[in-house]
Design a protein around this nucleic acid. Structure first.
Lengths: 187, 187
DNA sequence: CTGTATTTTCAGAATTTCCTGAAACTTCGG
DNA sequence: CCGAAGTTTCAGGAAATTCTGAAAATACAG
């Protein structure tokens, strides 16, 4: 399972970006190989393509499976496990955002809510207020995300393709949404 | 510059989340202290509050400044530098997204475009196609982001506050956007 | 220019994260 | 039940990242 120069370049990039994306080098490369190759691959194909240890591939695949980013396919008459990436790229985008939200945002939201339960002594009045402000902002953003996420992919694609029209639509909604809720936007 | 138990809890959380957010522990904590304290603080206040070295604070502040997440304020009659976080939380959100886009998405978009410049040999036909698919998806998403980002904060807040209404609005737009562009949504 | 207060730099120590190889485990045909 | 093919686990080594302390740089009053 040798990679062409073209594929190699693509795969290397995913390895290098790994640390910025919060995943290990090999995890990124493993995903990249599965993405760019049409046929399902088994673990040994990946060892061969990436030149890393068998156990590293095993753990990387496990992590990708935990993130729902690879699929497991049994090939009849072959005992080995074969893997691919899901075909629907939009599903991949949804999964990525969902997983990042789970890891990067939800724990903080939980902590902020927990902090807010406490009765603030007078010394913490300001801090308490800032925690509220941050919590409300994050809650607003995540509800917005939840709304978008509920749209079927077709509509989401349409919305995203709107481009410049979107701004006009929202601006044109001024009558429906005349910014009356300014009491809460003290910033 | 002692922190109250409440503040300490908040600051610790930002330290712990740091690695998930792709920033160093001290950078996260430094930001958290500046965020939760009303008055501008100098480097020594931060050393005191966090119990880390002076040089670590210096580098963390430098990094936060590079990200435009802290402001630098000169206090008259005091030679030291004082720092705060910007008041407008929405500006902070915009900055965070912008910086992450710059670090996590733009390099990949550049790489995908670069790969696409190459004439694909027949062996790379599939890979070339997948690169195109990924590039188009990312370009679509980033244009959508650019559109939202051009909205003034007030309108953005209004949009985000719409909640459930948003879905109806977009769905109601079906006549304006009757999903005619299905030729491109082969997924 | 000198002396003092403050900030920055950077080599290497400390810590964390990632990867490997050996061993254990699982699955399945015979 | 045995053996072979395949997979997973995990302790410890390798690599990368973060932090520290000492020294250098900067800023400024006198």
């Amino acid at each position: 399972m040798q990679l062409s120069a073209f594929e190699e370049d693509f795969v290397q990039h995913f390895g290098e970006m790994g640390s910025r994306w919060g995943i290990a080098r090999t995890v990124g490369q493993t995903y990249a190989v599965l993405f760019i190759k049409q046929d399902p691959l088994c673990a040994d194909d990946l060892v061969d393509a990436l030149g890393v240890s068998r156990s590293n591939i095993s753990m990387s695949l496990k992590e990708l499976q935990a993130w729902n980013l690879v699929r497991h396919r049994n090939v009849k008459g072959d005992r080995r496990d074969f893997f691919t990436t899901p075909d629907d790229m939009w599903q991949i985008v949804r999964t990525l955002i969902e997983e990042r939200k789970k890891r990067e945002i939800d724990p903080t939201l939980t902590k902020l809510r927990e902090l807010q339960m406490q009765e603030p002594g007078p010394e913490n009045a300001y801090a308490h207020e800032k925690v509220t402000e941050m919590r409300e902002l994050i809650e607003g953003l995540t509800s917005f995300y939840d709304e978008l996420n509920q749209l079927e992919t077709q509509r989401l694609v349409a919305l995203i393709k709107m481009g410049a029209k979107l701004r006009k639509l929202v601006t044109g909604t001024a009558k429906i949404l005349p910014l009356t809720s300014q009491t809460t936007t003290k910033g």
